[in-house]
Nucleic acid binder design. Structure first.
Length: 1085
RNA sequence: UGUGAAGUAGACCAGUUGGUUAGGUCGUCAGUCUCAGAAACUGAAUGUCGCGGGUUCGAGUCCUGCUUUCACUUCCA
């Protein structure tokens, strides 16, 4: 019987053979070292696979075969993330149970996979929607419900520990991750609470908890989405608009793990891109919260003067800054003060009097209840000189009270110590001058504090990471949603503010994000006081401030923040430079770090020092504290859906309780319709008797990421009935050694599964914190669409290169099915059949062919560029498909699918076949001893392939196989000892053909899969002689052969004497001779 | 805006710590086979390694500046 390479016959044969012999079966206990390879959990969609899907599976299949042949016990399972939206949507539309659709889809999926030659241990397969699986998803949920996070130990602990602590000491000494509004209570408070009240408190601490939260509600999908499921204000799935809505929700306290999730990234062998995305998503920023007091409305009785400024008349208090009644008493006091003034006061007075600084300064002047040292009534600046006693606590309080009062009267205050005046008078005068110049009292509009919300708002707290720039603050901005807005808006500004807030609130998330560059905002009319220099700064509202981040209040520092800069420019607010070197810059925000200037006690410090010193000041003054902020929010866990895991929760007096472990799984009930109920309840509300022990059960289900957050653990021990996976199994298999999948899960699945794994480790169920040690993100395979032109309104198609003969508006560009185009040449017959209207079309040809154009875009049905792997296998073979997908390029890279190269791979397999069988199909294997040249070619290949695979380079071995085949053909080498090693390195890539040749051509009785991966031996690559390339001045001039036994010096000597070298030397003596053994010789003239 | 990746023949990719005349596949061309074509087989040609500087005996590889492309990200104070 003659033997041809007939893939159809051999491929199905061996697929069956492997299956029957169960050669992929995994032992769960072994003395061998383990290796765990995993593909990202597929969702079995109904659409079937296209050629891009198996890319990662082929790579992992190759890698697990490689590892197995190296003697590892390899776990490489496959299963299905089978809860999900498409099946449910289909159920809503057709009434068919999602379980049935899902089952069918999985069947198709598995069928397609097995055709490619993948084989998985059947016993390990899991499906998230089967009760034997989700029973444990529910159990883990229960563990999360019964746990809280201790911040001191940075670990999750049993909730009972917390209850014990409450009973003994209340919660004063507890440092745990909890709700912001958790009240403080004592042990007796706790004991006096009812059970319901106690449960309510516990919800503030549980890692799985219910809370009123603003969620992303998608009305079209009828469900709540997690932050990572929303893109640009639209749902990731389906692209429906998403709105913010307050709802009671199950949540996961992932924020408790923010620090751990961030720190652990360090040790993961993942791409920098994904790590960076996770870092950004967690968004840790270390900063400082700082209070800004508001300037209140001056008491009415002070308004007795009238000062004419440039163009308007504003009321201000004049000389008489206290009431006549008070003045009677204060007059005496003031006189005494003048008589007994300190040395410092006297020295300063000499410099201030007679308008020496350009303004009239008064001495010992009474304001309200106080007598101030010096004052400029015109600029409303009070100058105080403090004696020693000002450092005492009581005096400090008194001073603060006075400062407050002065601010009430719209006076500003500048204060110096005796020492400063005595030792550094010039500096003091400089500061006073500056303040007199800058104190812009003319525009002062007093804050309405005392009106509106009853004057309760006395301060605003801002969050900043750059407290060092505090002296550059020229305004405050609030988010439009901020609740204090109404109480601090002045009557004059009320209309404008209301208009703006309404406008800003009605803008969709999408608009807000896409119009980043548009500056908008409105002034509230109120002012706050910079606690560092008592300066008065206006308070604005702008939508570039997000209510959900920090405190919703930003201190505007136009000189060092891009957005603040734009804002200040737009609204003409002052820009104060605080960093050295920004003085002459058009945009000072381009230099963000450096030495501080114009910043009083921070001057001269660099950014880091200044931040520390400023935080110290803030904390000493008790006007704020250093604070760490995260962008990460707690994750919404409820879905108003049917096709998901039911929560093992029932309600007693409105409080959630866990279903007993022994009653798990809580089975998904059968219902007749999968839509929400008429009054908006989730579909589970339709279920009959949806109760537990007479209490109502939770009606929302778990999100898609619940099941996929721990599936890699179940694979380790998928049949276990007693636990989610035995400790023995998880200890043995440990982390996933190689995880392959797309980048689209960068912040969703990959963050949640890290969270759950960390949690399970904390609770002692497993002994490692991180699920995936090494990850490779495969690039997408893009489609290559075929394009053609048709004359508008005519049934005439134009071959591609003839299009230039027509005007653009005469032509219509169309996509054509790529499966009927080969090498850009259209198969006209098939095209006519493709669409009935093409039957009678006219074709204008070039060189008797109809050419198409091509374009790379996403592989999608819409563009008719989907290539189905089944078709490729039908036309070529599964081995060809596997080889070619790897050959396309590096795994991580995005690359277009093109049929152009696939021929080459197919030809390679045919050439391989011909090494075993001659043209007539006769076996031509010989048992001769191999020659050194043959061994060298083989071992060069083995070495290369091993090195490539060890660094996860899957495309490069392919070309090494091709080179070896070509070399062996050239050498006419049909020797068994060489060819069997060749099959050994090749079998992970093309298992079918290799198994066939192994058993039927070479005559082995058992599977090639059980052989060892060929090892490389250095001795075949080393030679006794080496033909050295000779360079003269770095240029190649020829080759000279030397024995490898010669020393460098000997070679040097011989090189110079060499004819060839002599020719180029032209009688000169070489300056230098470089000999690199086994590499090169370079002669420098 | 930031982060990451990448520019090597007509196309898609290799090129490991600097070291031979930069490789593989497709395509192109020629030959064998054929009445002819397709297929198959055999062979050949094809490169300013994005641009400019630098380091070195020697640079596709290291450093630096510029430039182009792609992916993800994007008001986080």
């Amino acid at each position: 019987m003659s033997k041809e390479y007939n893939p159809k016959e051999i491929e199905s044969k061996w697929q069956q053979y492997w299956q029957e012999n169960n050669i992929y079966q995994v032992e769960n206990q072994s003395d061998k070292s383990k290796y765990y390879v995993l593909d990202m959990f597929p969702y079995p969609s109904g659409a079937g696979l296209h050629v891009g899907h198996p890319l990662g599976y082929i790579a992992t299949d190759i890698f697990s075969r490689y590892k197995k042949m190296q003697g590892f016990n390899v776990l490489h399972p496959m299963g299905f993330d089978s809860f999900g939206l498409p099946a449910e949507q289909y159920a809503i539309e057709t009434g068919q149970h999602p379980a049935i659709t899902t089952e069918n889809n999985i069947k198709t999926f598995k069928n397609q996979l097995s055709k490619i030659g993948f084989n998985y241990d059947k016993n390990t397969e899991i499906q998230t929607s089967s009760a034997t699986y989700y029973r444990w998803t529910q159990w883990i949920f229960g563990q999360l419900f019964n746990a809280y996070f201790d911040k001191k130990t940075q670990k999750a602990e049993d909730i009972d520990t917390l209850i014990d602590a409450f009973e003994k000491n209340g919660n004063q000494n507890i440092d745990a991750a909890c709700d912001e509004n958790t009240p403080i209570f004592s042990a007796s408070d706790w004991k006096n609470k009812s059970e319901t009240e106690q449960q309510e408190i516990l919800l503030y601490y549980r890692l799985a908890f219910i809370a009123e939260a603003t969620v992303n509600w998608c009305p079209a999908l009828g469900m709540v989405l997690a932050n990572d499921e929303v893109k640009d204000g639209l749902s990731e799935r389906g692209g429906h608009p998403v709105e913010r809505k307050k709802m009671k929700q199950w949540m996961m306290r992932i924020t408790a793990y923010a620090d751990r999730l961030l720190d652990n990234l360090e040790n993961l062998d993942w791409s920098d891109a994904v790590k960076e995305m996770q870092r950004n998503w967690i968004g840790k920023s270390i900063g400082c919260e700082i209070d800004f007091n508001l300037t209140p409305l001056p008491p009415v009785h002070l308004e007795r003067g009238n000062i004419q400024t440039s163009n308007q008349s504003v009321y201000y208090p004049n000389l008489f800054t206290t009431e006549p009644e008070k003045w009677k008493y204060l007059k005496e006091l003031a006189r005494n003060h003048r008589k007994n003034s300190t040395e410092a006061e006297n020295i300063l007075w000499q410099e201030l009097r007679n308008q020496k600084l350009g303004f009239k300064i008064r001495r010992q002047h009474a304001i309200e209840d106080f007598i101030v040292d010096f004052v400029s009534l015109e600029k409303k600046l009070v100058i105080e000189v403090d004696g020693e006693y000002h450092n005492e606590k009581e005096q400090k309080e008194y001073d603060n009270f006075r400062t407050w009062t002065l601010q009430n009267t719209s006076f500003n205050e500048i204060r110096f110590t005796n020492d400063e005046v005595l030792n550094d008078l010039n500096n003091v005068l400089e500061k006073i001058k500056n303040r007199l110049k800058n104190n812009n009292s003319e525009i002062t509009i007093p804050s309405p504090n005392g009106e509106g919300a009853g004057g309760k708002v006395q301060k605003l707290t801002a969050f900043t990471t750059r407290i060092d720039t505090i002296f550059g603050v020229s305004y405050l901005v609030l988010a439009p949603e901020h609740e204090v807005i109404s109480s601090l808006t002045t009557t004059e500004q009320k209309n404008e503010v209301e208009k703006y807030v309404t406008w800003a609130k009605n803008r969709s998330e999408l608009e807000r994000q896409s119009e980043v560059k548009n500056v908008s905002g409105v002034f509230t009319g109120s002012y706050a006081i910079n606690p560092f220099n008592q300066e008065k700064i206006p308070i604005w509202i702008a939508d570039y401030v997000l209510a959900g981040y920090g405190t919703g209040v930003v201190m505007g520092v136009p000189s060092s923040d891009e957005r603040d800069f734009r804002f200040a420019k737009h609204f003409n607010l002052p820009i104060r430079l605080v960093i050295e070197g920004t003085e002459n810059m058009e945009n000072p925000t381009e230099k963000k770090y450096g030495k501080m200037i114009n910043s009083e006690f921070l001057n001269g410090l660099d950014t880091k020092e200044a931040i520390q010193k400023a935080i110290q000041f803030v904390e000493n003054q008790e006007i704020g504290q250093s604070k760490v902020n995260f962008r990460l929010r707690d994750a919404a866990f409820s879905r108003q859906r049917y096709w998901g895991e039911p929560m093992p929760i029932y309600y007693k007096n409105g409080m959630p309780y866990l279903v007993d472990e022994s009653d798990l799984p809580l089975q998904l009930p059968e219902i007749t319709e999968y839509k929400p109920t008429a009054d908006g309840e989730p579909p589970l509300a339709r279920a009959k008797n949806w109760t537990y022990k007479g209490y109502p059960l939770e009606t929302t289900t778990m999100p898609g990421w619940a099941g996929s957050s721990w599936y890699f653990l179940r694979y380790m021990d998928s049949q276990n009935q007693n636990t989610f996976a035995s400790k023995q199994a998880t200890d043995y298999w440990n982390q996933v050694d190689l995880y392959v999948g797309g980048t689209e899960h960068a912040v969703g699945h990959l963050l949640y599964s890290r969270f759950w794994t960390n949690f399970l480790a904390d609770r002692g169920f497993i002994s490692f914190q991180e699920p995936f040690k090494k990850m490779i993100n495969q690039g997408m395979i893009q489609g290559q669409s075929a394009l053609m032109y048709r004359l508008k309104n005519q049934n005439t198609f134009i071959s591609w290169n003839l299009r230039t003969n027509y005007k653009e508006e005469e032509l219509q560009e169309l996509h054509v099915d790529v499966n009927i185009v080969e090498n850009n040449i259209l198969n006209i017959e098939l095209f006519k059949k493709w669409r009935s209207e093409n039957e009678n079309a006219t074709f204008l040809l070039e060189d008797d062919k109809f050419m198409c154009g091509s374009q790379v875009e996403k592989m999608s049905k819409r563009w008719y560029n989907v290539v189905n792997p089944d078709d490729v296998i039908e036309k070529y073979s599964a081995d060809t498909l596997r080889l070619y997908e790897m050959f396309l390029g590096p795994l991580e890279q995005y690359k277009p699918w093109s049929m152009q190269g696939i021929d080459g791979c197919h030809k390679f397999l045919k050439r391989l076949w011909r090494l075993f069988y001659d043209n007539e199909g006769n076996l031509q294997i010989s048992n001769e001893e191999p020659t050194p040249a043959e061994l060298k070619a083989l071992h060069k290949c083995i070495k290369g392939v091993r090195e490539d695979l060890d660094r996860y380079s899957f495309n490069t071995p392919v070309s090494k196989f091709m080179i070896l085949a070509t070399e062996l053909i050239e050498l006419k080498c049909y020797k068994k000892s060489i060819l069997e090693k060749f099959l050994g390195v090749l079998v992970p890539y093309t298992p079918h053909i290799c198994e066939e040749l192994w058993q039927n051509a070479l005559g082995y009785q058992s599977s090639i899969y059980h052989t060892e991966f060929p090892t490389f031996e250095e001795k075949y690559l080393t030679e006794s002689e080496y033909s050295y390339p000779i360079q003269i001045n770095g240029k190649m001039r020829g080759n000279v052969t030397f024995s490898l036994d010669l020393s460098k010096e000997e070679i040097e000597k011989m090189v110079v004497e060499n004819e060839l070298v002599q020719k180029y030397l032209e009688g000169n003596v070489p300056k230098k001779v470089i000999v690199v053994p086994k590499k090169i010789i370079n002669v420098v003239v």
